[in-house]
């Protein structure tokens, strides 16, 4: 694939690595608890932040590959022109709301960084990196969304896999 070096692909790689790390972290935590009586300190708190960051970074790849669920039940019945007319307002709404999400979450991320936001738990873990990942994930997703519109190919139901 020509776009294998795109930010979307890299974000997805990081997301995948993060999920594998979460798997190891949890397994080690369980083993340590069984054998030493005490788990990995902060495993739960770190897992929460890593998990959030991972799934957000995977957003764009999901959008690119068509993993996000859509239905073409009506649109496949329409002619090319009426399909465009039918879809256009929804398309605009999607772009507007993605921009709003990006704006609102970037504000939250900034606020979180400024006040060193953390969650209550055994230890304090800063959560702004996950909030930043959310905004990055949404920006990349918007890019992929726009690319997908340009392609404007009829949906293959298999893509919903």
């Amino acid at each position: 694939m020509a776009r294998n070096n795109s930010p979307t692909a890299w974000a997805a790689v990081i997301a995948g690595i993060g999920i594998v790390i979460l798997m190891f972290l949890t397994v080690v935590d369980v083993l340590m608890r069984k054998f030493t009586g005490q788990g990995v300190p902060g495993a739960l708190e770190y897992s929460e932040v890593i998990l959030a960051a991972c799934v957000f970074l995977g957003f764009a790849a999901a959008e690119r590959s068509g993993a996000n669920v859509k239905t073409n039940m009506i649109t496949s019945q329409l002619s090319r022109t009426s399909r465009r007319l039918f879809v256009l307002p929804a398309l605009v709404a999607c772009i507007v709301f993605m921009l709003m999400l990006i704006y609102a979450t970037s504000f939250s991320a900034y606020d979180s960084f400024i006040r060193a936001e953390s969650r209550f738990g055994l230890i304090r873990v800063a959560i702004w990196p996950a909030r930043v990942a959310l905004t990055i994930g949404l920006v990349l997703m918007l890019v992929e969304y726009l690319v997908n519109i340009r392609k404007a190919s009829p949906q293959d139901p298999l893509q919903n896999l």
Binding site: Q38, A43, L44
Partner: peptide, 24 residues
């Protein structure tokens, strides 16, 4: 040596009791 669910600053005190705080 007991595994006890605790969160927050007071965990420090519980550790001094010899218990193992667990974050559940």
């Amino acid at each position: 040596g007991k595994k006890v669910r605790f969160v927050g600053p007071v965990t420090t005190a519980i550790q001094k009791l010899g218990a193992n705080p667990a974050s559940i």
